[in-house]
Each structure stands twice: as C-alpha cells, then as structure tokens.
C-alpha cells in the first residue's frame, strides 16, 4: 500500500504578517518556516500511525516549491516519510499546485492521498479537492477520524452541524484536521535517517496558472479597545446594544 502525503511550507503561526514591494510580496525577513500544521500534525502523523500498524505501507511526501522547502521536507522525512518529491516551482495558484501533485500521483498509483484541511497562509482548503478531481478519486474533506480495514476506509468527517461516518473503498483523497492524530516531535534516529532518505527534485509539468495575486492588504487598524469599568456592566451592555448594534 502506498500513501502520498502533501505538505506545504508555511510561516510559523506566531509570525508577523507584513508585505513588501508595494504590498505585492510577503515579507519573509525574520519569518520562521514550518510544515503547515494540518499537513504535519494530522495528515502525516496519521499516515505514520498506519505504517506502524502495517510496516509494508510506503509513505511518499510531496511539496511544490523551491529549494527553501528542503528543510521542512527533511523534517517530514524525519518524522516518518520514506521518500519525498519536491516539484521545483513557485506558485500561489491552487490549480497549478494541485495539477503538479496530480502528475506525481498518476505516475505512482497511490491508495491514499492525504492533505491538511487547509494551509495556514492562503486558507483556501482547495488542494485536496482539486487533486481528487484530477486523479478521479472520491474525496472526503475535513476528516477527524480515519480507520483502515484491508482496502476499506472508515472515515468520520465534519459536516454542517455535526459529523458523518462513511465507508469508502480505496483509493481516496482525504483532507485531515484535528482528531486524526496528535502532534509528534521527530527523534534523533529519525533525523539521522532522514538525511539519507531520497528527496527527488522534479521539474514542473507544463500547467497554466488560472489566478494570480495582484497585491495584499492589511486589515484597517482597530480603533482601539473601548474599556468599561468593572462596576459599570450596564454601560457595556448599552454600548453593545446601541453603539455596536451587536444584538
């Protein structure tokens, strides 16, 4: 059985968000880069847990990006991937990224493709759904539990106002979120082993981009917090009701 886990490089959750070049580019100075938390904590760790139960499982990793993605790919290999692909292209267009990953997926015939539910930088929650269409597999979004029994997966996912449990024959594409697994820290053995695991750099396929970023904007600064004295609760309620019209 082969699992493909899609990982993305994102700024650390505590990063200051700023832009440069007349607000057309993200300011990377001083930013710590991490594996997108949903990709790492939920998609990758669940794949590793499946492999721990069944050591014949092979985990491939894929990312789309430049050489600056190599540290996060090495970290993912240290956590437990077997082999990684980096598609050497820089793009913010979801379709371009998904189509590049779909090319890898078509060549390697995976039984399972895991993504995080969204990346914390562009928040589109798009890659999993797009890959599934391009490789013509069923897609289960926002999964919170994943169990494998032979070639049948039982998946719990979040839906409007609750959750749904479903059975699906592999192959399937799954977007993963909290509940799937718990965050792990790579151990020294994993870090050493990751140095020699294959990281293949692949040149991108010829795919058109369908969107482009014109510029970024920061939200307008808040007017500031209006403080109300602790002994004047009726004033707070009056402000919420009359000024903010919040209820």
């Amino acid at each position: 059985m082969k699992i493909l886990v899609c990982v993305s490089k994102t700024p650390d959750t505590t990063s200051k968000i700023a832009f440069k070049e007349s607000n057309t580019q993200f300011e990377e100075a001083g930013v710590q880069w991490i594996i997108n938390p949903y990709d790492e904590w939920f998609a990758l760790v669940r794949a590793i847990e499946l492999k721990e139960k069944d050591p014949s499982i092979i985990i491939h990793l894929v990312t789309v990006g430049g050489a600056d993605c190599d540290p996060i790919i090495r970290k993912a290999l240290a956590l437990g991937g077997d082999e990684a692909f980096r598609i050497n292209a820089d793009s913010n267009d979801s379709f371009f990224i998904a189509a590049q990953i779909a090319e890898i997926a078509k060549q390697n015939q995976y039984d399972l493709i895991f993504t995080g539910k969204e990346a914390i930088d562009y928040n589109s929650a798009a890659i999993g759904g797009m890959i599934s269409e391009l490789v013509d597999m069923p897609y289960v979004s926002l999964a919170t539990l994943f169990e494998l029994n032979g070639t049948t997966a039982t998946i719990t996912r979040e839906i409007e106002g609750g959750e749904e449990v479903a059975e699906i024959s592999l192959p399937v594409v799954v977007s993963c979120q909290k509940g799937m697994a718990e965050q792990r820290i790579p151990n020294m053995r994993g870090i050493m082993a990751a140095r020699t695991k294959p990281l293949k750099v692949v040149e991108p396929a010829a795919i058109d981009t369908l969107t482009s970023i014109v510029n970024f904007e920061l939200p307008p600064a808040k007017a500031g917090c209006k403080m109300v004295a602790a002994d004047n609760v009726p004033e707070l309620i009056r402000l919420l009701h009359e000024e903010a019209k919040a209820f």
Binding site: F95, S124, A126, L134, I159
Partner: peptide
Amino acid sequence: QTHTGKSVAARVAARLKAGLVAG
C-alpha cells in the same frame, strides 16, 4: 465557504479549469 463549499468548490473549479478564489 462552509463545510460543503470546502468539500466541493475546489473540485468543481478543477473540473471546469476555472480559477478559484476560496474564502
């Protein structure tokens, strides 16, 4: 961009080769 939109919009965009803005 609800649970349903997150499940379906991107997939529809890929099928139609349509540019997507999600969110």
